[in-house]
Write a protein that binds this DNA or RNA. Structure first.
Lengths: 149, 149
DNA sequence: CGATATTCGTACGGTAGCTGACGAATTCGA
DNA sequence: TCGAATTCGTCAGCTACCGTACGAATATCG
């Protein structure tokens, strides 16, 4: 939102937004042939690398609301990529795992690390670290402020 | 998405996401008493400060798709805050302007600059500039890559 | 002048987030 | 031990994005 910069506020906000959306769009474009959304990819990623997981834990790990994850999981189950069972000692919980076809799909998926690499290729290592630090600090301040409100 | 950092890619992507969402959440929380969403605020902001505008121009200025803006505008018109007329020489275009009640509401709205200020208070000016530069460069690379795909 | 291409706004469908409410299951306290 | 609080997953409803398709209006070109 370029014009907003004239107000001298929300400028970095505008760039975080642009950067976030650009990255996600590229992710989505890459995953489109596989009929996967970016968040669906994160779920598969976690299940493939961290193994089966209780839905609640997965939500915490991916920083999603339970309700949000619930919808994603429903989609993945419908596609036959993920299995949702309730075999634990706590009958409220649902355990998630990749199905055979989910594992097969995961093996076919391209490596997405090229996105991060392309985005920050040629950028000074120290500058990247600074950026991370600034964003982390800003996020923490914002979340703290949100807490109080 | 913290765990993702272990893959050593998408780490900055995760922070831009967190930062963007945290900022937007704070904006939404501040605007909630006025029953306004953050994008609705941007539209009012533009109309209040840049004056009436053709819908297409507004979409370009706010970096929104025409379809997206169309929905936002419909909501604002329904609330009686914005007037949508087609009085130009080009009968396809719709000219947008604040209504009287829209102007009144705008005057009542709090200044949102405290969000940006709070987020980056105490952060070194040079570091902030570096962050802006890195984000801008990354976004441009990502968009260029998206273009080709 | 008439056919074709473009542009504007809208409609529809999809993804990705959120909140709030709810039933079922579990835990905690008195 | 029994009632109250908490937790888990889901549902419904909202904002905010996207892409595609479409009708109407305009521009362009032969």
């Amino acid at each position: 939102m370029p014009d907003v910069e004239k107000t001298e506020h929300l400028t970095v906000g505008a760039w975080t937004k642009r950067c976030y959306f650009a990255g996600r769009a590229l992710m989505d474009a890459t995953l489109r042939p596989f009929d996967l959304g970016s968040t669906q990819w994160y779920v598969l990623w976690h299940l493939a690398n961290q193994g089966p997981s209780v839905q609640r834990d997965l939500a915490r790990a991916l920083e999603l609301e339970r309700a949000t994850l619930s919808g994603i999981v429903a989609t993945l189950v419908r596609k036959g990529l993920v299995r949702q069972t309730s075999d634990g000692d706590d009958q409220r919980q649902r355990r998630l795992a990749l199905t055979r076809s989910g594992e097969n799909l995961w093996r076919e998926l391209p490596d997405l690390s090229f996105i991060q690499q392309a985005a920050f290729a040629g950028i000074d290592e120290a500058d990247l670290a600074t950026t991370m630090r600034v964003l982390r600090a800003a996020t923490e301040r914002l979340q703290a402020l949100l807490q109080k409100a």
